[in-house]
């Protein structure tokens, strides 16, 4: 049973990273590791910034 739960949880985590759900966590990691000057973005600010940057930098989707 444990193995099933772990498997499902692993799959959920995988799908999460695939969709980019962990982007903010990765941003924080990077921020801490690189010792940025300036203030860190809050989660809300980060997602706004992420979406707004896509506006000026569109990514193609394939056929």
């Amino acid at each position: 049973m444990n193995a099933v739960v772990r498997g499902l949880r692993g799959f959920a985590t995988y799908m999460g990273s695939l969709m980019g759900a962990d982007a903010y966590r990765k941003y924080l990691e990077h921020f801490e590791a690189s010792g940025h000057s300036g203030s860190v973005m809050t989660e809300r600010e980060f997602w706004r910034d992420r979406m707004d940057r896509q506006d000026s930098n569109p990514q193609g989707r394939c056929c």
Partner: peptide, 10 residues
Amino acid sequence: LRFIRPGKVM
């Protein structure tokens, strides 16, 4: 995603 729960993609 923008206003209610930002970042809760899944």
